[in-house]
């Protein structure tokens, strides 16, 4: 049993700072930005870093399984107009109601660049930790059953901060 004299308070300085780790906030749900996020994540994991991706707001789209979301009227409307899933997300510019997405996908395929679903699968294979933001899931009415199985349980900001505080590299995309 622990007595009062043995009790030690763990301070920030006790926590090993800057391990070989990268933590990233993925805020965007745009194809081009998500692609950048996953290329950096897979590249870092391939270089031997521990990688954590925290998906919040539109960023959740890239870890959704593509099923329709929403419970209330607004939530359902949002779910319809803002379909999640790696294959449905469009670029931040020149989307033109899906034309741009199709064009970009075609161009990427012609050049043999890895597609977003491939990058997601690679990230999983390399052990990239994917954390969904619980608050965003509540706001956007996205249940855990609408996320891909590879994600961790939904977490909050303190969990991300703990990851980020011990990371050499932190990014916001």
């Amino acid at each position: 049993m622990q007595t009062a004299t043995q009790f030690t308070v763990q301070t920030a300085s006790d926590i090993k700072p800057q391990s070989n780790k990268l933590s990233m906030v993925v805020f965007s749900g745009d194809m081009d930005k998500v692609m950048a996020a996953f290329i950096i994540a897979t590249g870092a994991a391939a270089s031997g870093m521990d990688v954590t991706m925290f998906f919040t707001f539109w960023g959740l789209k890239s870890i959704q399984n593509g099923k329709l979301t929403g419970q209330g009227l607004f939530g359902r409307m949002l779910g319809l107009m803002n379909r999640g899933g790696m294959s449905t997300i469009g670029p931040s510019r020149f989307n033109f109601g899906g034309m741009g997405r199709w064009m970009m996908k075609t161009m990427m395929k012609q050049k043999n660049v890895a597609s977003l679903p491939e990058l997601l699968a690679t990230a999983q294979e390399l052990g990239v930790k994917m954390m969904p933001c619980l608050m965003s899931m509540e706001v956007l009415e996205i249940g855990t059953d609408k996320l891909i199985p590879a994600t961790t349980a939904p977490v909050g900001v303190a969990t991300f901060i703990e990851e980020a505080a011990g990371s050499k590299v932190t990014l916001f995309i």
């Binding site: 290329i39 590249g43 391939a46 043999n112 890895a114 294979e125 390399l126």
Partner: peptide, 14 residues
């Protein structure tokens, strides 16, 4: 051959 960033590095590391 034919692969672009990040796949050469990813395949190599795997």
């Amino acid at each position: 051959k034919g692969l672009l960033c990040p796949m050469p590095i990813v395949r190599l590391s795997i």
